[in-house]
């Protein structure tokens, strides 16, 4: 490497003479960083999504390689967020890929001190059994004056507000049809 090349390779020289006076782009690049490719460039697919935290509704682009989320960035097209994400939105990739996420069903028997494993299908069947039993035991057809009640007060539900509209629609529809009235949401809180 000649002296000239050495000097020209200096970031501060490039910053002073080049097109990047603030030293935030090309001037700060090393040979290594110049050779890197962004994960976003090599992604197999990009899904257009929305941040799951607060109600601002910032646009997200979810980059996927080999069936795994490799990066989540702000969507520059969004008129709401103009490509920005706050610390929470920026951490969404860590959220969805968190090693702490539970990926199997856990079951705690009455009076038990530890969790057990349970098959998903069995769990849904057991829950269905319990719903039918609770309805059976607590069903109210009519009030004292003979007016319809059509309900069970033996079942409650409290939903979060990160559920999709389509999900809430099915939740309310199914619970209403089974006569479960005590259905609530974060929106009450």
């Amino acid at each position: 490497m000649g002296l000239r090349t050495f000097i020209q390779g200096w970031p501060v020289y490039r910053q002073l003479t080049g097109t990047d006076p603030l030293g935030r782009g090309a001037a700060a690049q090393s040979a290594r960083s110049a050779a890197l490719t962004a994960r976003t460039e090599t992604a197999d697919s990009v899904a257009r999504s929305v941040c799951p935290y607060c109600a601002v509704g910032c646009g997200q682009r979810v980059f996927v390689t080999d069936g795994r989320v490799t990066q989540i960035e702000g969507d520059p097209d969004s008129p709401i967020s103009r490509g920005r994400l706050c610390p929470k939105g920026s951490a969404s990739k860590s959220l969805v890929t968190s090693p702490l996420r539970q990926t199997t069903v856990r079951y705690r028997r009455p009076y038990a001190t530890e969790w057990e494993d349970l098959d998903l299908e069995t769990a849904v069947d057991m829950i269905a059994d319990r719903i039918l039993a609770a309805r059976e035991e607590t069903w109210e057809d009519v009030d004292d004056a003979g007016r319809p009640l059509n309900r069970t007060l033996g079942i409650s539900s409290l939903g979060g507000a990160t559920l999709d509209n389509e999900e809430n629609y099915l939740i309310k529809k199914l619970f209403t049809a089974m006569g479960a009235l005590q259905i609530e949401n974060q929106a009450r809180i």
Binding site: P52, Y53, N168, K172, I183, E184, R188
Partner: peptide, 13 residues
């Protein structure tokens, strides 16, 4: 919350 308005419009209340 991301869809708290939605949770009131299509309520689970």
């Amino acid at each position: 919350h991301a869809s708290i308005q939605g949770s009131t419009d299509i309520p689970t209340l």
